[in-house]
Design a protein around this nucleic acid. Structure first.
Length: 516
RNA sequence: GGUCCCAUCGACUAAUGGUUAGGUCACCACCCUUUCAAGGUGGCGGUACGGGUUCGAAUCCCGUUGGGACUACCA
């Protein structure tokens, strides 16, 4: 195993520790899963540890059940943390709301070092400040020299307000001049002038830290070596670097991942479709397909291959090969990939697929033996992308077909009834009722009558399945069984007699079958 | 508006100064075929633009344009 990151860091002797740090504000986002995946791949590739930390410092946005969903989604994808609120570890607690005292102490430390300060402005005062700045045409930022903070108020008044229990925040004292420079493993050197960095609130008036403080303190305390996160964090990284400096800590390596995009190239959002991992699970995508697909969104091992197992991704992964530009989340390719894994699963784990299909049938009040379900899966799997499509695509394998008058009129002509009756008689005599026997007898019949075989196929398909597309009819009939087949033809003929017959087409051998 | 990031076929990407700019999805055609798929073969299609540097630029530099993210006592 090689360690390419060693070439530009002094951390060779130190083992890799990375973290995925989602907020419990709802279902795990597919973009979050990719961030987690890249962290996981990086950790495993280097024999390091992957940590899950819950960033719940905003109590107002907390959604119950989120943590469970995050854990379940990761587990579903095969991404198991080494340390987390449920897996434990030596650096806990792994939930930020349980670490408030740690943050408070660290904010205090910054206060003592003079790199942070108290501010007493109310939300309304801050809002007015921004409006003034906007009106004056300058960028909104906290104006340390005119607002109500320990500098403008003086030490005595500050002390008095604090003792009076006035709501206070602690802000980072960003240098007025100079610049912050840091290195990003994916983007190279990034420089931000200090004048463009705001005096970020570190500790809110409710005593909770903001993301910025909690994130830096925890990454340091948990000995995180590489911060691998979404590109949306790039602009605030300068603040974080300033914080590390304020504490006198060494910064971790940074790697900001390209965003996952909507088809219009905006940040992937709910407005354009499903974004929760949960949604993709419900739609029947396989974890290996989702993992494979999102791994290749923003990273590529430079090979002509498209299909990779998790283990193969682990051994091939490197941050050096992560792209800079955002990647559109393309459902069409995901569907293709899922279909590839469907075929693989049919080969390797048909029973598992049967177990997944059974509840889908039961939802509709249908049932069948494991063997029968398995044979239906084998029959139709190349025609669907996701398993749940099966119950729609091949509903007639489990229940009486639904006949559609419009489809009927495109296929049916004034000789069809007679032909179908004849076919029915012929089928009744076939024994054993196997695909092979059916093929032979119907072939012979077609030849003898000089009827194109496809005409027989489409007629039987219409009568027996109610559709115009599907798996081969010989296999379909053999699986359905003779009784069902004859029964359906009988029912179908009965149904056709309930329809007004005056508009039936005349037989035209030239154009009859749709495919010429 | 400001700051930062980004820019190869419609989408995902390969090519890290020398290739007829390659592959996958999608799309189109053909083959296979009882239909639809799957599979096979072929095709369509791209270095945003303008300047440099160089014998040579998709690749390095500058600018333009375009897109995105961020700009909270949210993460």
């Amino acid at each position: 195993m090689h360690l390419p990151f060693c070439s530009n860091t002094l951390r060779c002797s130190m083992s890799v520790r990375v973290r995925f740090a989602p907020s419990p504000t709802g279902f795990l986002h597919i973009g979050g899963l990719r961030t987690a995946l890249y962290n996981y791949l990086f950790a495993r590739h280097h024999g390091g540890r992957f940590i899950l930390r819950i960033e719940d410092t905003d109590r107002t946005r907390y959604v119950p059940g989120s943590v469970e969903d995050i854990l379940e989604s990761l587990r579903w994808a095969g991404i198991e943390p080494d340390e987390s609120p449920v897996h434990g570890g030596d650096f806990g607690p792994y939930v930020q709301s349980q670490r408030t005292e740690i943050y408070r102490q660290h904010a205090q430390l910054l206060l003592e070092r003079g790199t942070a300060y108290y501010a007493f402005d109310t939300p309304e005062e801050l809002e007015r400040m921004r409006q003034r700045q906007q009106a004056a045409g300058i960028a909104p930022h906290y104006d340390r020299s005119s607002m109500r903070n320990q500098f403008t108020l003086g030490p005595e008044e500050t002390k008095r307000l604090l003792e009076a229990g006035e709501a206070a925040t602690i802000r980072l004292k960003v240098p007025l001049h100079g610049e912050v420079k840091f290195h990003d493993l994916i983007r190279g050197t990034i420089v931000v002038p200090c004048k463009d960095i705001d005096d970020q609130v570190l500790l809110k008036s409710d005593g909770f830290p903001t993301y910025h403080l909690a994130n830096v303190v925890d990454d340091h305390l948990m000995q995180i070596t590489h911060v691998i996160r979404g590109e949306e964090w790039l602009p605030s990284t300068a603040k974080h670097v300033l914080l590390y400096e304020a504490f006198g800590w060494e910064t971790p390596q940074f790697a900001h991942l390209p965003l996952l995009l909507n088809p219009d190239r905006s940040k992937l959002s709910k407005r354009h479709g499903d974004v929760a991992v949960r949604d993709y699970i419900a739609k029947g995508y396989f974890p290996e397909a989702i993992v494979n697909f999102i791994a290749l969104l923003g990273w590529n091992p430079s090979s002509d291959r498209e299909l990779y197992t998790l283990d193969e991704l682990i051994s091939a992964f490197s941050l050096e090969r992560v792209n800079k530009a955002g990647a559109v989340f393309d459902l069409a390719k995901l569907d293709w990939m899922n279909a590839q894994y469907l075929k693989q699963r049919v080969q390797r784990d048909l029973q598992g697929l049967v177990a997944s299909v059974r509840p889908l049938l039961e939802e509709r009040g249908w049932s069948a033996s494991d063997e029968y379900i398995g044979r239906v899966i084998v029959l139709v799997h190349e025609r669907i992308h996701r398993l749940p499509e099966l119950v729609e695509f091949a509903d007639y394998m489990f229940t009486a077909p639904h006949y559609d008058e419009a489809l009927f009129r495109t296929t049916w002509d004034d000789t069809s009834e007679e032909l179908l009756v004849e076919l029915s008689t012929l089928l009744a005599a076939i024994e054993p009722f196997t695909a092979h026997a059916l093929q032979e007898r119907l072939n012979a019949f077609a030849k003898e009558r000089n009827i194109p075989f496809r005409r027989i196929g489409s007629l039987l398909r219409l009568a027996i399945t109610g559709k115009s597309v599907g798996p081969g009819m010989m296999d379909t009939m053999a699986l359905l069984g003779k009784d069902v087949v004859l029964d359906r033809i009988r029912n179908f003929l009965e149904w056709t007699r309930t329809l007004p017959h005056q508009h039936i087409k005349e037989h035209n051998p030239q154009q009859l079958p749709q495919h010429e």
